[in-house]
Design a protein around this nucleic acid. Structure first.
Length: 474
RNA sequence: CGGGCUGUGGUAUAACGGUAUUACGCACGCUUCGGGUGCGUGUAAUCCGGGUUCAAUUCCCGGCAGCCCGACCA
């Protein structure tokens, strides 16, 4: 079996090793695509079910739209098509004939959904319209990376229409803060910053792009989710309009927002160690694995009763007789199962089991009688511990810079660097060229600083009182 | 798409241009079982297409794919 070891220079290899060892996914024969294996998919299903119910609580309805988008649809919004055209997969033939108009395999569904919106929305009474789609999309990226950037990926894309720009903006932020941030932090135990993207990093066609952004263990930042205020950019080109209370025709204001299978990449990069994956309980498909040691009938009976007392908690009992206990320990550790229970003759004599935590590796005996309570408490504790560990790591790698020299140095050592910046697109490109880092966000939580500030790179006077976050990114 | 490295059973590896090595895995049997038991028997491979050669895993060209570095990005 592969030994997983994190080294500075082949972090990517470590990441791939974790994916392989945990049996999450593998490369497909199709360039840039991946096969998500059952265990990896179970994690995705868990994410889907949580996010889906959070969205439904907000009144969002699920729907489904075609995978094919007529080329002319994409061309209606100029910035949109310009942003996406380099990475489109195009279908030119169907039924053995050349198509009159090429069909694009959706890279995102704004255009085809807004075509429907234009038919569905007539009155202010139809608003807000809140639609979500769970789907696959295709973007022909230059450099694919399992989970983080694959040619085809799974996601949810939400699309809403509102009566005013203010309402749309509020909604985009509501999803960001109350769905995405909450999911990332409370379920994935992955601390995120919320903020706004720079002009250069904005979604193609958006008025404003908001994001949640997480710091990975190797000091790079991952955009884990985005929410866009599209203003009326798309509704103008797709003629999505309504009559208001006074009978006046107006264009709607729209939002779109999405998270993808990239979240799984974020999960791996946030918590995994040299033994493999580490899953926060709220995402783990299995919470507890029970491994009998030298099992006899009595032990099997005890396991049955423990299992019953744990009803409602997903438990797996590993009864395979062709493996040693030790081999099983390694295997389940690689898969990131939060708690392992060992039970053998010696434990049974004492009326105890051995409980081992995946996050800390701490091993301890506890009485069978109170096992449910202990497990429940430990699961909560693991969930919290993983979040705090990740938060602590982020805090330690954070830095501030007030001079270019300090900026360059801090970028090199990884983590976020907070600095004053002029927000110029050319300036951003220049910073990227010099340091490989880009602006990640203007944090909503950042403090406004008084006094006069100059741009970290070009030295121009800066109006914005908050510092931008810069980092290398995926 | 540019620069670098690489492509051999399921995985990891070996082979001066000459019968494709070894380990793990997998299957079966026995043996073990508190952190990767031991033994035996089996199973299975040169990315694709050209070229040079009596002979190509090895040399050359092209393609495809992976990894790293740029540009792109959820």
């Amino acid at each position: 079996m592969k030994t997983i070891t994190k080294r500075e220079n082949d972090y990517s290899q470590w990441y791939l090793d974790v994916i392989a060892a945990a049996d999450l996914a593998e490369h497909s024969v199709v360039r840039g695509c991946m096969v998500i294996k059952p265990y990896g998919y179970a994690i995705w299903e868990k994410m889907v079910s949580v996010i889906d119910s959070m969205l439904k609580e907000k009144g969002v309805k699920n729907a489904y739209f075609p995978i094919f988008i007529p080329e002319s649809f994409l061309e209606r919004e100029k910035k949109h098509v310009k942003g996406f055209s380099p990475e489109l997969a195009v279908v030119t033939h169907g039924g053995g004939n050349k198509l009159q108009e090429p069909l694009i395999v959706r890279p995102t569904s704004e255009t085809i959904i807004y075509d429907s919106f234009s038919k569905w929305i007539n009155s202010y009474r139809d608003l807000p319209m809140l639609i979500n789609q769970w789907a696959n999309v295709v973007r022909w990226e230059m450099r694919p990376r399992l989970f983080l950037r694959t040619t085809e990926f799974l996601w949810q894309e939400g699309h809403t229409a509102h009566v005013s720009l203010e309402e749309a903006d509020k909604y985009a932020l509501d999803i960001l803060n109350n769905v995405y941030k909450r999911f990332a932090e409370d379920y994935m135990a992955m601390p995120v910053y919320t903020g706004q993207k720079s002009e250069g990093e904005k979604f193609a066609g958006a008025f404003k792009t908001y994001c949640i952004e997480a710091m990975m263990q190797d000091g790079k930042s991952l955009q884990a989710g985005t929410s866009h205020n599209l203003s009326d950019n798309f509704s103008k080109s797709f003629n999505v309009s309504f009559l208001d209370e006074t009978g006046r025709k107006k264009n709607v204001f729209q939002t779109s927002w999405g998270v993808s299978t990239r979240l799984i990449g974020g999960l791996i990069m946030s918590h995994s160690d040299d033994r493999g994956l580490v899953l926060p309980p709220k995402i783990a498909p299995i919470h507890v694995v029970i491994i009998p040691v030298n099992p006899n009938e009595k032990i099997l009976d005890t396991i049955q009763s423990i299992r019953q007392s744990l009803s409602g908690i997903p438990v797996e009992v590993d009864l395979r007789d062709n493996l040693n206990p030790g081999e099983k320990y390694y295997e389940w550790e690689k898969k990131g199962i939060p708690i392992r229970i060992e039970i053998g003759p010696k434990d049974l004599e004492k009326g105890e089991i051995v409980m081992v935590r995946r996050d800390s590796g701490v091993k301890k005996s506890c009485p069978i009688a109170g096992v449910r309570l202990t497990i429940e408490k430990t699961l909560l504790d693991i969930q919290e511990n993983l979040f705090l560990k990740a938060l602590d790591r982020r805090q330690k790698s954070n830095g501030k810079a007030d001079s270019w020299i300090a900026f360059e140095q801090k970028i090199r050592s990884g983590g976020y660097v907070f600095a004053h910046w002029c927000e110029g697109e050319d300036c951003e490109a220049d910073i990227k060229k010099k340091t490989k880092a880009v602006s990640r966000f203007l944090s909503f939580d950042a403090d406004e600083e008084g006094g006069v500030h100059v741009c970290i790179n070009c030295g121009k006077n800066v109006v914005e009182k908050k510092r931008w976050a810069f980092a290398k990114a995926y």
